[in-house]
Write a protein that binds this DNA or RNA. Structure first.
Lengths: 192, 192
DNA sequence: TGTATTATTTGATCTAGGTCAAAAGAAACT
DNA sequence: AGTTTCTTTTGACCTAGATCAAATAATACA
């Protein structure tokens, strides 16, 4: 899908505004596993995934990677707090497949926020949507068993479950690889 | 502090706009433990705490209350997803002390968003700020031990720790009352 | 001030899910 | 096709924090 469609699905921009807005985005091809942002860097761009899956992850002291978030086609992707508060990112950002993304810098985005009321609205809607998603995940992590969390994932992101390595999903769900593997085994048994 | 100050601290509104905006807020005194929103209701108002502490909580099947969020002076308070997505709230909203709050309905807020670009901006800034807070809490819950979470709370919300019942804090931090009590005991021992 | 109610602490026990280590399966590379 | 490397599965064991139950301590109330 085209960038203009993604944007217009959120806020119905007049064509004139839309053309200007789009001119600030850049279309980039991104290689698998090539970091878009590294830990410690300030994340200067907001991405929109056109094709591929991305993730943000953080590195524990012992070197283990913990996936914080997945981003699929049509979703905006960034190291959220770093991008919005402009402080060093705690996370890495990478694509898990060779992908195509649109990007816009924080500066240009701010410029567009100031220039167009509609754009400000888009910003507001995107953050409340993201907010809802984070709240949902928080509830899942805080209140559900490992198994319930996986079921939730199967429902909400069936797509991702089949596209990315088990280890990534496990850490995203706040459990170990081994635990997720055992859950999967039990589920297959029940399903057959 | 006055409502106009809270708002102007976030976005510098021209006086004319400010007067109009403020006219849509209502000042309410709220009694301790009287629910502002009950589970199942759509949360129709956004509140700003002038005086007091509030919380949102949800009721587990077994009847236990789980605090989801605290709100102190100067903070906007609501059953977030319910207010923004206008679906039935999973949470109750109440003040833990006799309090004074400002409130605005979703309808009026939308009206102000449409009328003033500045107001839209305020909405965007508030949601990104809230987003950052939720992300931080998610990280705490997902990656830290019970004890680290309590220390985090002591730093970030020293205020709340001394103002509300231990049971509320424990459930907010995703642990049982007993566990928090034991942590506190251990901390006092170390401090002396 | 004494009694009822609610909040906090303490102790004993249990369990979901973690850790560590190794085997089995898949992919990727020559 | 054979070897190296990465991913997933399986097993044995362990620990943080939960649960259950009862004892204190603090507040509210008559």
């Amino acid at each position: 899908m085209k960038l203009s469609n993604y944007l217009q699905n959120i806020v119905p921009f007049p064509t004139s505004e839309l053309a200007d807005i789009i001119s600030y985005f850049e279309r980039e091809k991104v290689q698998k596993n090539k970091p878009l942002v590294k830990e410690g860097q300030v994340c200067s761009k907001l991405y929109l995934v056109e094709e591929g899956v991305g993730r943000s992850f953080y590195l524990k002291e012992d070197g283990k990677e913990i996936t914080q978030w997945f981003f699929v086609e049509g979703q905006f992707m960034s190291s959220i707090e770093s991008f919005f508060q402009q402080n060093p990112s705690l996370y890495y950002l990478e694509m898990l497949e060779d992908s195509v993304v649109y990007s816009i810098t924080r500066e240009n985005l701010d410029l567009l926020f100031a220039r167009y009321h509609n754009m400000e609205k888009l910003g507001r809607l995107l953050s409340t949507e993201m907010l809802t998603r984070v709240v949902n995940k928080l509830n899942a992590i805080q209140f559900q068993t490992a198994r319930e969390r996986y079921d939730y994932m199967l429902n909400e992101y069936p797509d991702i479950v089949n596209r990315v390595a088990l280890g990534y999903i496990a850490s995203y769900l706040g459990m170990t690889q081994e635990t997720l593997s055992r859950i999967r085994k039990a589920e297959t048994r029940n399903r057959s």
